[in-house]
Write a protein that binds this DNA or RNA. Sequence first.
DNA 1: CGGACAACCTGGTTGC
DNA 2: TGCAACCAGGTTGTCC
Length: 276
Amino acid sequence: MPELPEVETMVRDLSARVVDRVIDDVSVSNAASVRWPTFQEFRRRLLGRAIVDVWRRGKYAVLTLDSSDLLIIHRGMSGSVLLREKEAPLEAHVRAVFTLDTGDEMRFNDPRKFGKIFLIDRRGEEHPLPWAHLGMEPLDDSFSADTLASLLAGRKALLKPLLLDQRLVAGLGNIYVDEVLHRASLHPQRRAHSLTVDEVQRLHGAIRWVLATAVHQRGTTFESYRDIEGREGHYQDVLLVFRRTGSACRRCGTAIVKIVVGGRGTHFCPTCQRAS
DNA sequence: CGGACAACCTGGTTGC
DNA sequence: TGCAACCAGGTTGTCC
């Protein structure tokens, strides 16, 4: 569920609510959600710590503490972070709870248990930081059409799986890759190295536009995604292809088609996005 | 390197 | 209605 826009929305919302708050208590009901360190150690190092910053790297949300530690959350496929009053009824799949000095609880709700939480010293000396192998931030100024071109150069892989590879560009997932490719009028199974200069430029522009717009719309909500206060995003209202199989392309009217590419459901317009 | 596929989990939807 | 099969916004590892 959570791709860059959903994580960015979460980070911005959390930032306004939890910075300067102190963690009074920690409980974990699914031990496997905490990947590092052991629960005892995890709890000990969190208790009494203040949150001084909240930021994002790729699809990881990071809470900087007033110790030397970072609390790092990856929501996996179905995870969300909710900020609720302690008294509010617990949601069905809460795997970890961080109680703050305001009486609010930061709840990690994760039905499929694909999410991961880490507590790692900020230099990554005891355990590698999970973004050690992540690629560029697509919304950073340093992500130019030229740098994208150099990432694609010589790569024989299919365009879509390559864009999903977090080692090249960090933050794109299945929804936004499909949306980006439609906006750029590129077929998901084009070979990355076959793109012309003009096509790379279009791809670059589409990545920036789609992600920035989706951030502005506070992400995409299907069944379960909610922000930290349980509200929906709005980008689902303007999707061009994702989960629109059989519906008319908003540009040319052709029925949107769904195929499997790299093991992922892939939606595209066979007229606007030609294979060759 | 690249691609197919399974695995990790649970819940909702689809189809018979 | 009941139930099995299939699908899902992610990541990682194996095998060829």
